[in-house]
Simulated scan of single mutants.
Amino acid sequence: MKYLSDQMLIEVYHRAVDLQLDAAFIELLRLELNNRNIRIAQASA
């Protein structure tokens, strides 16, 4: 994950959510976003 730019990480996160990928993978991305202090607005269902 450290090789991804912040922008790329954000794009990957959004794509993973849109494609409803594995919840564990999305959580891993969320943790990395939090580690980098990047806040993503949660879309309401």
Rank of each mutant, 00 (worst) to 15 (best):
L31S: 13
N35A: 10
L28F: 12
E32C: 02
F25W: 01
A45N: 12
A41F: 01
L33A: 05
A23N: 15
R30C: 07
R30A: 06
F25T: 10
R30K: 15
L19P: 00
D22Y: 01
L9H: 06
R30Q: 14
I26F: 08
M8N: 11
L29W: 02
A45G: 09
L29G: 04
I40F: 05
A24F: 08
L28M: 06
S5C: 01
F25Y: 09
I40K: 05
S5Q: 04
R15W: 15
Q7P: 00
I40P: 08
L4M: 12
S5A: 09
Y13C: 00
M8D: 14
E11D: 02
E32M: 01
S44Q: 12
A45L: 14
D18S: 10
A43C: 00
I10V: 14
L31G: 11
S5R: 09
R36F: 02
D18A: 07
N35V: 12
K2Q: 12
Q42L: 02
R15K: 15
S44V: 10
R30S: 15
K2E: 12
Q42A: 09
M1Q: 10
Y13E: 07
E11R: 04
I38R: 02
R36Q: 04
R30Y: 02
L29F: 06
K2V: 05
S44L: 09
N37S: 12
L21N: 08
N34H: 05
A41H: 03
L28G: 13
F25E: 12
N34V: 03
Y13W: 02
Y13D: 03
K2S: 14
A43D: 07
A43H: 01
I10E: 10
N37C: 10
A24N: 12
R36L: 08
Q7D: 08
E11F: 00
M1P: 12
L29M: 04
Q42F: 01
H14Y: 11
Q7H: 06
I26M: 14
Q42N: 03
S5V: 03
I38F: 02
L33S: 02
K2L: 09
A45V: 15
R15T: 15
L21I: 09
K2W: 05
N37K: 13
L33M: 04
R30F: 07
A23V: 15
R36S: 02
I40M: 09
L21A: 08
L19I: 04
F25Q: 09
V12T: 09
L28R: 11
R15Q: 15
E11T: 01
A41V: 01
I26Q: 15
A16R: 06
Y13Q: 04
R36Y: 03
F25R: 09
S5K: 11
D18Y: 09
I10T: 01
Y13R: 04
Q7W: 03
A23G: 11
V17H: 07
